[in-house]
């Protein structure tokens, strides 16, 4: 078990190091998010939406920005391995589970990094007031986790196909849609202060993230090896 963790950390560290030197995924993810944020805050701004609609509509916009930023960059770690022809040697050297854990870790770092910068900026620029900050943070953390788990396994699949770019969004979206709806609900709840919605959302998001983790762990070796 500890050996698996060491190997997974080696994979994640390798990905972070190459990412730090090339910044391909970070640029895709970060620039996309910031551009959209700028566009949204310019066109919608803090005062266009009436006070009663704000908790919900601003939650919709926030999660759409996060989801599409994720779809712009979270496939990079797998696609890059295939495009630069490094995948076969990794396949021969590392255990599939270590690769999956490492890539998942890398995607988690990316998504949390994105959230850490994007979410405060969004709240300031859009004037998004959150009543339950703790609940909001929990929703972000659990939502980011579920998002990373689902996109990681889909990225592993599409990396092995011929046409990759569009396929990632096409395959991810049906799987992400329920998650997106949960998270929007929960965030709206956190914004207008209904703790009940927040807890029910957390339950749904965590169970979805948990199930997807188990299924991914079982199926990833198949995706990776074939």
């Amino acid at each position: 078990m500890s050996r698996l963790l060491v190997e997974a950390l080696a994979v994640a560290a390798k990905d972070l190091r190459t990412e730090f030197r090339t910044r391909v995924a970070l640029n895709a993810l970060g620039l996309f998010a910031l551009t959209v944020l700028a566009a949204v805050s310019y066109t919608v701004g803090p005062y266009r939406i009436t006070a009663e609609d704000r908790p919900f509509l601003l939650a919709v916009l926030l999660w759409i920005v996060i989801f599409f930023a994720a779809l712009a960059g979270l496939d990079r770690s797998f696609v890059k391995e295939e495009e630069s022809h490094t995948a076969p040697l990794l396949r021969l050297a590392a255990s599939p589970t270590a690769v999956w854990l490492g890539k998942l870790g890398f995607n988690l770092v990316l998504i949390y990094f994105l959230m850490a910068i994007l979410v405060p900026l969004y709240c300031i620029l859009m004037g998004y007031k959150i009543q339950l900050v703790g609940g909001f943070a929990l929703i972000l953390v659990s939502g980011g986790y579920a998002l990373a788990v689902i996109t990681t396994i889909v990225a592993a699949i599409i990396a092995r196909a011929l046409t990759r770019g569009a396929l990632f969004s096409v395959l991810s979206l049906p799987l992400l849609l329920p998650l997106l709806i949960f998270l929007i609900q929960g965030t709206a709840g956190a914004a207008d202060g209904t703790a009940e919605t927040v807890t029910s959302t957390l339950r749904a998001v965590l169970s979805m993230g948990g199930i997807m983790t188990i299924v991914s762990a079982m199926l990833f070796p198949v995706v990776w090896a074939d």
């Binding site: 699949i157 196909a161 995706v223």
Partner: peptide, 29 residues
């Protein structure tokens, strides 16, 4: 999405297993 994935893989063995995995993921969702 399932049929698009099938159309994008030209290796029959790989297509079979990857699309099977995707079907299971969708089933869980």
């Amino acid at each position: 999405a399932y049929l698009a994935l099938r159309g994008a893989i030209d290796d029959p063995e790989r297509r079979a297993s990857l699309s099977a995995v995707y079907a299971i993921l969708a089933f869980v969702t």
